[in-house]
């Protein structure tokens, strides 16, 4: 074989390299490696105009994308994390929380708002991946449970947008129990025949996938999102084999029957609205 021929496929982009908000005037697309003008990216709801790669977007952009303007009321905004285990690894949980709160100007990793999607009334919860990897501790669990309960009381549909590494280790088994708590609230919502749409975005893994993210009446994902239970690295370490191409991406889950739809971001709002009108 010629020495200049590439034998290895290009390496997967690491989590760290996939910055969430592109800064500066020009951005390198993580899908096609092309250089894009950031203003153009912004106009295109953070989708690469050349290859369609979906950059991650923050909570506010997500709310703007889905809800009609002027219709929004934030709910349960006073719920804030505490440190029930007095957890400390190389750094204390308290200090970590403070850091993230400063950096993101939010108290924890989820925002709940009431509003309308093309005039259909919904309760919307959006997980903030920038805040400790969107990890689910007591606050995320409590606010999503309340969102489901609010939907139930006000007979609205529930929409949850996930982007999370899973349960938050720093709150130990309390984080795990949030999976059961939210699922129980979703059981009630389902019994009342109120629609619940789960939107899975890059990345959705661990305890979040293994609870509310997979429990939508409809599960809808953005293209190319990493979605799974175990993370790819854990699986690779366990089986010591190369993972198949496209493994745990939205299209893979669609093919295996776990998603109803993979929808481009530009079509997301219209699709959600259409589905909600069919169901409610």
């Amino acid at each position: 074989m010629a020495w200049f021929r590439r034998t290895k496929r290009p390496r997967e982009v690491s989590e760290r390299q996939r910055s969430i908000v592109p800064e500066g005037l020009w951005v390198k697309c993580q899908g096609c490696r092309e250089i894009i003008y950031s203003k153009e990216l912004e106009r295109n709801v953070q989708i690469c105009p050349k290859c369609g790669y979906h950059f991650r977007i923050d909570v506010q952009a997500r709310i703007d994308l889905l809800l009609d303007s002027g219709s929004r009321v934030e709910l349960f905004e006073g719920v804030r994390p505490s440190d029930p285990l007095k957890f400390k690894d190389t750094k204390s949980y308290k200090a970590r929380l403070k850091d993230y709160q400063k950096r993101t100007a939010s108290l924890d990793a989820v925002v709940v708002v009431e509003g309308t999607v093309e005039e259909v009334e919904v309760v919307l919860a959006v997980i903030d991946y920038r805040f400790m990897g969107g990890s689910m501790g007591s606050v995320v669990g409590e606010k999503i449970t309340r969102a489901a309960e609010r939907a139930l009381e006000s007979a609205r549909s529930l929409v949850v947008v996930s982007a999370s590494g899973g349960a938050r280790m720093q709150e130990g088994v309390l984080s795990l129990m949030q999976m059961a708590k939210i699922s129980a609230a979703l059981a009630r919502l389902s019994e009342a025949r109120l629609p619940y749409i789960s939107i899975l975005t890059d990345p959705t893994t661990g305890g979040v996938t293994a609870s509310f993210a997979m429990l939508g009446d409809l599960n809808i994902a953005e293209p190319g999102a990493l979605i799974g239970f175990a993370g790819p690295r854990v699986i690779q370490q366990t089986i010591r084999e190369e993972l198949p191409e496209g493994f745990q991406r939205s299209e893979f889950l669609l093919e295996h029957g776990f998603l109803d739809l993979v929808v481009e971001r530009t079509q997301l709002k219209a699709t959600v609205a259409r589905c909600l009108r069919h169901l409610s």
Partner: peptide, 10 residues
């Protein structure tokens, strides 16, 4: 299960 979780509220 509803009561599980520890948080503060303003």
């Amino acid at each position: 299960f509803r009561v599980l979780g520890v948080y503060e509220e303003a």
